[in-house]
């Protein structure tokens, strides 16, 4: 298919795997931190907010190097994890970690904005009907915030598909193990005669990103048809408040 070499094929498969694992693994912590930032006022909130956003403003190479220092074999967390047989540096799992960290601010930001937009008065009504705080979150908050949660997830996935700087710094560029799509394209542009392969991978990369965007747009529109009108209705109903 597309006349891909085995290395190119494995780079695509690896990128999809790394991006999926990174996105899925970030989902629950991302939602939790977005909820905390949207709803709670506590000392250290600004610090947490800054920490989450740090990968967005740091040069990716710096983030990758910090990951290497922390999670490398001799790093604080790396040596701890190594005792349990978990090695991240120069492995595809490390690439997933790098992608997750880089995509995290985008995911949290989108989720937080949509959680902030949820009508607290409806949540209160649900509580008076006997729903515990967790039940309110599952049955009211999360469904109403779903378009933003979805948007955050797609953004994080797209970011993970394209992550290069932090990944190559942290886990290098080993074909079949840590050579993701961007790394493979970079490698092909560095060798004579690699242009055709680079172009093939570039087109595939564009197709995957567009596909993800289209699917999320489609889902968001279907959700929006139900929820968007719901928000309007609430605004009308709340006119007398």
């Amino acid at each position: 298919m597309f006349g891909l070499t085995p290395d190119e094929g494995s780079a695509i498969a690896l990128s999809l795997r790394v991006a999926s694992v990174a996105t899925l693994a970030s989902l629950v912590p991302g939602l939790a931190i977005a909820w905390v930032l949207a709803r709670k006022r506590f000392p250290g909130r600004a610090l947490l907010d800054g920490l989450v956003h740090l990968p967005l403003i740091l040069p990716p190479v710096v983030t990758g190097y910090l990951l290497l220092l922390a999670f490398g074999r001799r790093g604080t967390f790396g040596s701890m994890l190594a005792e349990f047989g978990i090695v991240l540096s120069f492995r595809w799992t490390g690439a997933a970690l790098a992608c997750a960290v880089m995509g995290f601010p985008l995911m949290v930001r989108a989720m937080r904005l949509s959680l902030e937009a949820v009508d607290r008065r409806v949540e209160q009504a649900a509580a008076t009907l006997g729903a515990s705080p967790f039940a309110v979150f599952l049955t009211v908050t999360l469904p109403l915030a779903l378009p933003g949660v979805l948007a955050g997830t797609v953004l994080a996935f797209a970011k993970a598909m394209g992550e290069f700087g932090a990944t190559i710094t942290f886990v290098s560029n080993i074909p079949g193990e840590t050579q993701t799509l961007p790394s493979a394209i970079y490698t092909l542009t560095q060798v004579p005669g690699g242009e055709a392969g680079a172009l093939r991978l570039t087109l595939i990369s564009v197709a995957i990103s567009m596909g993800a965007l289209l699917i999320s747009e489609l889902l968001a529109r279907r959700l929006g048809r139900r929820l968007g009108q719901g928000h309007e209705q609430m605004a009308r109903g709340g006119g007398g408040a």
Partner: peptide, 16 residues
Amino acid sequence: HRRRIGTVFQEARLIP
């Protein structure tokens, strides 16, 4: 949620 006091507000606050 454990008080079991049904509450009707000025605006209906139905779950949209």
